[in-house]
Amino acid sequence: MTSDSLLSARGLVKQFGNFRAVDGIDVSIERGESFGFLGPNGAGKTSTMRMISAVSQPTAGEIRIFGLNPVSHGPEIRARLGVVPQEDTLELELSVMNNLLMFGRYFDIPRKVIRQRATELLEFAQLSDRADDKCDNLSGGMKRRLTIARSLLNQPELLILDEPTTGLDPQARHLLWDRLYRLKRDGVTLIITTHYMDEAEQLCDRLVVMDQGRIVAEGAPRALIEQYSTREVLELRFGAEGQEPYVDRISEYAERVEVLPDRLLLYVHDGDEVLRAVHATGATPESALVRRSSLEDVFLRLTGRTLVD
């Protein structure tokens, strides 16, 4: 735990009755960093987020945010945080602008300042032309962008985003990612939870992989892939006769084989070369795909399960 960390946690535990949602995790996040928590639903990400955003108290362990203890300094810490919760909690009856005006008041920001910042933030969120629309009439992607704009009203030093793009269509996701890039470039520290590996690869400088309340790996996305996976992956699907007859025959060509219900994953250095070798054995896969290794493969390797069921 370095003293100049923006956020550090040691031995963090969250227990609900008999269920241990977070089971002793250590993290340290530096200023200006973009940090990810990657894991499937139920891995303990949201519980962790609620603790590090100074909302819920840890059952055990300690956290320091901006060097302060959230148990005793919750309001002071939250004044410097921005939080984008998993579900949008906008005031649907109010207009887009009024949502921002009202939320800013919770931070005791003078109305004039809020209005000025809100105008800029709506520009940033590409919602300027919707400022007077009722929130209820916005699309899912717009609501998400408004929630992000809202979380920036108090000019936070740290922005915490819980599953920022879940439920959005691809276009809306890319727009959102673009906005988050800009924040990162402007020096805002980001903490992101996601169960999308592409999102984690795109946005995070460093991440931890969570499973069943624990951290199972930590590092930069590329480093994790290099450490836990091969350069390329060959995905094979077999037809009606199934893949079982081929597993033994093929596995000698790969460093590692994962048998999924619907396909085989062959972890290899050169996918095309191995595919030729597979064909040479007489196996006739219905389809074959060569791709680069991703965090999904890291997760599969570490937990034996896929990220999105």
């Binding site: 955003s53 309001p75 939250r78 919760p85 579900e87 909690t89 005031e91 005791d108």
Partner: peptide
């Protein structure tokens, strides 16, 4: 239903 307070709790309010 609306989880209005969840948003409020992300601010200095207790």
């Amino acid at each position: 239903v609306a989880h209005t307070y969840d948003a409020v709790l992300a601010t200095p309010l207790d």
